[in-house]
Simulated scan of single mutants.
Amino acid sequence: MNRDITHQLNALHHQGFALLPGVLDAGQVAAARAAIDGLQPIHWDYQGLVDDHYKCVFNRAPFWLAYLDLPGVIELAEAALGEDCHIIGQTAWRSHPGFVGAELHVDHLVMELPEALLADPAFTLPMQICTAMIYLDDIDRDLCPTLVIPGSHKAGRKPHPGEESWHGRTAEPVLCQAGDVLMLRSELWHSGSRNRTADRSRYLLQVHYGRRMVAQKFSPYLQFRFNPQVLAAATPRQRRLLGEHAPAEYD
């Protein structure tokens, strides 16, 4: 494991998140933004007054496959979740002026655990789900920065309604550049924030990774079918990420 991945993996264990700078170049950022602009809502997608949300974009066209296993990101996902991890979603967002982000929350908590256990240096909480947040804009304080409370994945619980801090720490904005990627584990307390700009929309692509035994639940569920063009274009690693696994005990 190279030094960068080791450092980032340690950050996931100790801080609950890691920022990976410069994953995409300007051309890749521009291409992803243009592709999001070309999306049309299907199934459970929506285009609203202040935000647009598209699910399972990996299944729209082969273009999106490259964003599933970006260099530096996929190695961290595999180090955190196992070399047989897969995706459980890929979501594209446009957040327009006036957008209000989600309140402080966790994405998924497998079980509540005593905080004293999680504070014990001899215990390391395994990760089950991580999300790569691929920023397609320069993120400043006015353009919907993601807010995180470092270390709060060790709370062992979800934040209570109205709770805004953990151990005296409040949520901090992640300020970054277009092409940077924020990897966060699902137990971390985090939130969205407002788009306070007058004329800028934040473009964001998310890839959700899970361990092999975290089920893939692609909407609209029973009606979901893989796009044959996507499967034909996928590399062996991308096909594994889409769910083509070697047989295991529960298959």
Results as ranks from 00 to 15, higher is better:
88 I>F: 02
179 G>T: 08
118 L>P: 14
210 G>P: 10
40 Q>W: 07
31 A>T: 06
164 E>N: 07
169 R>G: 03
137 D>A: 10
114 P>L: 13
132 A>Q: 12
167 H>V: 00
83 E>P: 02
171 A>T: 09
116 A>W: 00
104 L>N: 04
59 N>C: 02
126 P>A: 11
87 I>K: 07
5 I>K: 03
242 L>P: 03
173 P>G: 08
38 G>C: 13
194 R>T: 03
241 L>R: 00
131 T>Y: 04
28 Q>P: 01
10 N>K: 13
137 D>L: 06
94 R>D: 06
104 L>Q: 07
5 I>W: 01
74 I>L: 11
19 L>P: 06
111 M>S: 14
101 G>L: 02
32 A>I: 10
93 W>R: 08
242 L>M: 12
157 R>G: 11
100 V>C: 04
130 C>P: 06
114 P>T: 10
65 L>N: 10
121 P>N: 09
133 M>K: 14
164 E>Q: 15
39 L>W: 10
83 E>G: 10
186 S>M: 09
156 G>R: 13
110 V>W: 15
59 N>F: 04
24 L>S: 14
104 L>W: 07
2 N>H: 11
85 C>T: 02
87 I>R: 11
88 I>G: 12
37 D>I: 10
177 Q>G: 11
220 P>Q: 00
206 Q>C: 11
86 H>S: 07
114 P>S: 14
193 S>P: 05
116 A>Y: 02
200 R>V: 00
229 Q>L: 14
153 H>W: 09
39 L>K: 11
10 N>Y: 05
106 V>T: 15
7 H>M: 09
168 G>T: 12
195 N>L: 01
48 G>I: 02
41 P>T: 06
118 L>G: 12
231 L>I: 09
122 A>W: 10
70 L>S: 05
21 P>R: 14
190 H>M: 04
106 V>N: 10
187 E>L: 09
220 P>D: 00
51 D>P: 04
140 D>T: 02
95 S>D: 08
